[in-house]
Design a protein around this nucleic acid. Sequence first.
DNA 1: TTGTAAGCGTTATCAA
DNA 2: TTGATAACGCTTACAA
Lengths: 323, 323
Amino acid sequence: MNKKVTINDIAKMANVAKSTVSRYLNGGSVSAQTRLKIERIVQEQHYTPNTFAQSLKQQTNHTIGVIVPRLDSIAQSDMLRGLDECNQEDTFLIVNAYQDPKRELAAIEKLQSQNVGGIILLTANLTDEIRAALTASPLPIVIQGQDEPDFHRVIMADQHGGETVGAYVKTLHPKNVLLLNVNAEIDHAVGHDRFMGIKAALAQTPYTEVMTDFKLDTAKHDAKKAMAADQYDLVIGATDRIAVGAMQSGYALHQKPQYIGFGQSFFSETVTPNLTSFEFSFFEAGKQLYRLFVKVRDENPQTIQRVVIDGQLVIRDSTGPQH
Amino acid sequence: MNKKVTINDIAKMANVAKSTVSRYLNGGSVSAQTRLKIERIVQEQHYTPNTFAQSLKQQTNHTIGVIVPRLDSIAQSDMLRGLDECNQEDTFLIVNAYQDPKRELAAIEKLQSQNVGGIILLTANLTDEIRAALTASPLPIVIQGQDEPDFHRVIMADQHGGETVGAYVKTLHPKNVLLLNVNAEIDHAVGHDRFMGIKAALAQTPYTEVMTDFKLDTAKHDAKKAMAADQYDLVIGATDRIAVGAMQSGYALHQKPQYIGFGQSFFSETVTPNLTSFEFSFFEAGKQLYRLFVKVRDENPQTIQRVVIDGQLVIRDSTGPQH
DNA sequence: TTGTAAGCGTTATCAA
DNA sequence: TTGATAACGCTTACAA
């Protein structure tokens, strides 16, 4: 920050008081004559107000802290793109929590000490500590990822996704199904909501449920163990990544079951064969998330807001005819 | 920002002047007695200084604008993690430029008007306009991605990577090689530097160079065209993503050449077969980038700084024995 | 060691 | 329509 031109400089150059310049900037009443004069000088000098002074004075600011569980995920980056898309005038302070509840909590506290104007929290899992911190905060806060009844939130239609996949699975008439799920304690939306519909659809079909985690390697390992022990003609992963792990195990074991995942298109189209999956609109989720945040911040609604984002089943080669 | 406790509140509670509290906070001289008193109250009240007031007063701040070309890339997120890793006290304002030079320029201007304390620019390509904007800025600036002589920078050892891959390629004794490259005008570090060593190593071997772009679909399409027209036993992609596109084409055409890419491990391990690639340490690059930035900001070196980050060849199944 | 006071760049109030 | 002036929360001479 070298020698930035201030409102005082502009005022002097225009031979007016700085309050007049301020009024000009904020759309107050100024005569056409002085307006023109100030306008010219502001342009010439490339003047932009000092945001710190503004925030200090206004006791609020347009920086929104966004906490993401991870950055190396298409879903998250799509969501951030959605936030960007709608954004008119806010600045996002993106903090990576590295899927660690401790870091998530620390991020909430740090953001508050940095005086952000609000927080958008993307999360897989809320601890009691985090709930307490959120509740204690005077800031407008919106969360995404979990259907937490006490907070304004945007959630994905995991339940509907599970039902849709369930309905599709019925048409495939599988003989023996492997479900690769994650612990609902770690991510309730994924571990529980997604699989309800699937299990209902498999009422008449034998299936095995194996718990794994979100990492590719773990999924690969757990899938291999299961697929070596029994023969499956359909494998459903809780996420695309998990399904891909299973595909690699299948490849190694020379098995060719059908595969279904949950997630977003890029990942699904990267693997061979392309993966059939239920795809959520994370981009849309980001847009809605921003809209909801603005509503919460500006209107301070007294009832908890809840927005559900739908998705759709995209059928690709992994459940295609050649299988 | 509801009713945050200020330094004045603390001062009153402790029956001292606010300057004393300020001195306590900034490590100035205070008697053991008052130190204890203030300490207790600060803790009780969860007092944190208002960063806007601090920045306003100090005429500088600890927010660094980070412009990234894209967010849906492991390389970028690894680099950001590296930045985080070393960071002591700075806040990163991450801006996605969506691989669009216009947005990149706009981001530089917006960050300046937001009074960031400096800019870290990750980029594939610098336009003259952007060079001009960077040169005109009074802020400390560090760039990454291109070997631009006029700016402090961290670059990847693309040239050395190409030579290493070249040496390895010789040991494979390929009969006919397909190079899938990108235009050096779009990304000189990739399009030119990476391929110098490879082409030198292929002096005695027939090869075809096809230009494509960074998108998976384009690479797939271009690779398919080339692989349908001629028979190759080795395909080298300018990036992992491009190599994966080629793998998919090979799969579709029932061809099984060997494949080599450039990039980071996750992507390489996602595909089947796992991809041999020259992997740069983007995480390390991020760390060095932050260190370099701090050096530039705090020491204002008069000579242009240049840091090179190395990588290593990781041999996987795609050039493995079963091929 | 401590307190007083000025000032950072804004916006808002209130006279003129 | 304008311009002084106070205030936002903090740091920093300088004085006590």
